[in-house]
Simulated assay, not measured.
Amino acid sequence: VHSEGEGLTTVVGLDDVVVVATPDAVLVASKAQSGRVKELVGVLRARAHPEADAHRRMYRPWGWYQRVDIGERFQVKRIMVTPGGRLSLQKHFHRAEHWVVVKGTAEVTLGERLVLVHENEAVYLPIGAMHRLANPGKIPLELIEVQVGSYTGEDDIIRVEDIYGR
């Protein structure tokens, strides 16, 4: 039994079983069939299950983001940007974003303005606004992002400039 989840994972009365619990999913398989995980992922991809490739925490060259909640017309993410990390200069056609800094200092490009946003401060990014997030500090930047709009998918990112070549 391997568990990375926040809750307790236990089993009783099982033999020759593999149990893996992560924040994304739980796998229970007989040891004899545990080698078929790759096949299972292939089936999930073929059926267009986002869980096959999209994990709760998604790592990027600048740090990571983790979905906290999602619903119709909104999504909430926790974002961590490493010191010196910088997201792409971008805009969105279908969503606005609200960023609340919970740790560190954010350097936010919003249109032609450059704004420093400190802990317990927030910035609003309207739909269509050109923006970028960077961490000019020496500690990891953490913020909560609330997206609101008709569509919050990752393919609603129009990158204009990206130091990581994406």
Results as ranks from 00 to 15, higher is better:
46 A>G: 15
69 D>L: 14
65 Y>Q: 04
18 V>Q: 06
123 V>L: 11
18 V>S: 04
97 E>P: 05
128 G>Q: 06
24 D>V: 06
34 S>I: 04
86 R>V: 10
134 A>L: 05
98 H>D: 07
31 K>C: 03
137 G>K: 09
5 G>D: 03
110 L>H: 07
131 H>Y: 04
82 T>Y: 12
107 E>I: 00
51 E>V: 15
132 R>F: 02
162 D>H: 05
41 V>G: 00
11 V>L: 09
37 V>H: 04
100 V>N: 02
59 Y>W: 13
127 I>T: 13
72 E>Y: 08
83 P>C: 03
35 G>Q: 07
45 R>C: 02
136 P>Y: 12
157 I>F: 00
65 Y>M: 09
35 G>F: 05
109 T>G: 00
2 H>M: 12
123 V>A: 04
130 M>P: 02
130 M>Q: 11
29 A>E: 04
29 A>K: 03
19 V>N: 02
122 A>R: 03
122 A>L: 07
155 D>C: 03
76 V>L: 15
20 V>P: 00
91 K>E: 09
84 G>Y: 09
73 R>G: 04
145 E>I: 14
116 L>Y: 10
23 P>I: 08
158 I>Y: 12
146 V>Y: 06
112 E>D: 15
45 R>A: 13
140 P>R: 03
107 E>Y: 01
77 K>N: 13
120 N>W: 13
35 G>P: 01
35 G>L: 07
1 V>S: 12
164 Y>P: 08
133 L>P: 04
3 S>K: 01
40 L>Q: 07
103 K>E: 15
72 E>W: 01
27 L>Y: 13
28 V>Q: 02
103 K>Y: 05
49 H>N: 14
47 R>I: 06
13 G>R: 02
70 I>C: 00
60 R>Y: 05
96 A>Q: 11
12 V>T: 14
76 V>I: 15
109 T>S: 01
8 L>F: 10
84 G>C: 09
94 H>M: 08
133 L>S: 01
104 G>P: 06
146 V>I: 15
97 E>T: 05
80 M>K: 09
49 H>V: 15
61 P>K: 07
161 E>V: 03
19 V>I: 15
41 V>A: 06
9 T>K: 01
164 Y>M: 04
34 S>F: 10
73 R>P: 00
73 R>H: 14
26 V>M: 14
8 L>G: 00
43 V>A: 12
4 E>W: 10
